[in-house]
């Protein structure tokens, strides 16, 4: 095992869209194997924060460390430091992402969806990639759907394929961006079960979620975000039973 303190760390992460400041200096440290649930009212910048981590959004300023190594440092919209291209790519691949709206490739079957990145990016042979893909799809409980196109699957099944697709890249951190928000209520459970199993296996996870039950049960730490800032963070028991921040209290009251 590598010798590092935090698998992921951000310092003063800021992001603006034009004049609108969405993230106002986010500091977060994540230990390996930790499950963190990010909760908060909509418009708090939770999704933007996740998307900034794996470069889907370009941050305005701040530092991102991966395994204690400075991965990206920007100030005033200019890059101060950036890891070398090879390393950058490798570091990015440490993060798997699951989207709210699945974003499966509709023209590829379940198996192809899961196989494509290992073959193209990890340069695995098709046989190896297929073997890996089959075992992961089995893990998310869809072993009877290998050759089915996504359009023939339910939302819950699609999201499980999306999780399998991210896992096939063998990441060390999984980022979940509201994975159950687009699902019918009766399909939420199957996705959460997969995520719980994943947490049990020791995967480092950052979940933006509205499923408070899940957060309470699975999270090691709950982070409350509002107005682009982290206003409270702590173990779920403490956060849910004894929140200190005003906004957190009113947020919890509104959803429970």
């Amino acid at each position: 095992m590598d010798d590092y303190e935090f698998i992921l760390k951000t310092e003063q992460l800021c992001k603006s869209f034009g004049s609108l400041q969405v993230l106002k200096g986010i500091d977060l440290e994540v230990k390996q194997g930790e499950v963190i649930c990010i909760v908060g009212p909509s418009g708090a910048g939770k999704s933007t924060y996740l998307r900034s981590l794996n470069q889907l959004e370009r941050i305005t300023s701040g530092k991102i460390f991966i395994k204690d190594e400075l991965f990206l440092h920007r100030e005033h919209n200019r890059t101060i430091h950036k890891a070398e291209a090879e390393k950058l790519k490798a570091m990015l691949l440490e993060m798997g992402m699951v989207f709210q709206r699945f974003n499966l490739f509709p023209h590829k079957t379940v198996l192809e969806n899961v196989m494509i990145a290992p073959v193209l990016v990890r340069k695995k042979s098709r046989d190896d990639a297929e073997k890996l893909a089959r075992s992961i799809i089995e893990r998310v409980g869809l072993s009877d759907k290998f050759d089915v196109y996504p359009s023939k699957l339910s939302g819950g099944q699609q999201q499980r394929v999306a999780i399998a697709r991210a896992l096939a890249m063998e990441p060390e951190i999984m980022l979940f961006d509201e994975p159950t928000s687009a699902l019918d209520p009766e399909l939420v459970g199957e996705v959460l079960n997969v995520m719980k199993a994943l947490a049990k296996q020791g995967m480092t996870m950052l979940c933006v979620t509205h499923e408070m039950g899940f957060a309470r049960e699975v999270a090691d730490r709950v982070v409350f975000m509002a107005d682009g800032m982290i206003l409270e963070a702590g173990p779920p028991k403490q956060f849910f039973e004894n929140p200190k921040n005003e906004k957190a209290i009113s947020f919890l009251r509104s959803i429970l």
């Binding site: 691949l93 989207f99 974003n103 990145a117 193209l120 990016v121 991210a166």
Partner: peptide, 15 residues
């Protein structure tokens, strides 16, 4: 979302 999913999986622009 298709573009983002591919990017998140580490695929290049060409791929």
């Amino acid at each position: 979302g298709q573009n983002e999913a591919a990017k998140a999986l580490g695929m290049t622009y060409g791929q």
